[in-house]
Computed example of a mutant assay.
Amino acid sequence: MKRSRPSRGRAVAAALLLVTLSACASQVDAGVSQEASAPGFLWGLWHGFVFPFAFIGSLFDPDIAVYAVPNRGGWYDFGFFLGVTVLGGGSWFSSRSCK
């Protein structure tokens, strides 16, 4: 059975659609703070790591948040992403083959 490869045109169209949709993303200015006390990369890393526990806690207590606002912006977001994916297990669990 011959597998058909996706055409290059489809890949370019998908990439163009992804770039176009990402251009619509924005961050509210009130959510970003440059003060020294605002959470930065390391706090984002920690908040990403404890995300599963914070999410469960937020279901029962409205004072628990899973994401700090205001924060320092992109670096906090990057730390949060790394905390959720890398420290939280990420794709390691799905990479193990079932035998």
Rank of each mutant, 00 (worst) to 15 (best):
R8L: 06
R8G: 13
A11I: 13
V12W: 03
A13Q: 08
A14Y: 07
L16R: 14
L16H: 04
V19D: 01
L21M: 12
S22G: 12
A23Y: 13
A25F: 13
Q27R: 10
A30E: 04
V32G: 02
Q34L: 12
A36R: 07
S37N: 13
P39W: 09
L42P: 00
W43G: 01
G44N: 05
W46K: 14
H47C: 11
H47G: 07
H47M: 15
G48V: 04
F51V: 02
P52I: 14
P52D: 12
A54C: 13
F55R: 12
F55Q: 12
G57I: 01
L59V: 09
F60M: 04
F60Y: 10
P62F: 13
P62E: 11
A65W: 07
A65C: 06
N71I: 06
R72E: 08
G73H: 03
Y76E: 06
D77P: 00
F78M: 10
F80A: 01
F81R: 06
L82N: 01
L82M: 07
L82A: 03
G83Q: 00
V84H: 03
V84W: 00
T85Q: 11
V86C: 10
G88F: 00
G90K: 07
G90S: 06
S94N: 12
S95E: 12
S95M: 14
S95N: 07
S97G: 13
S97M: 15
S97A: 15
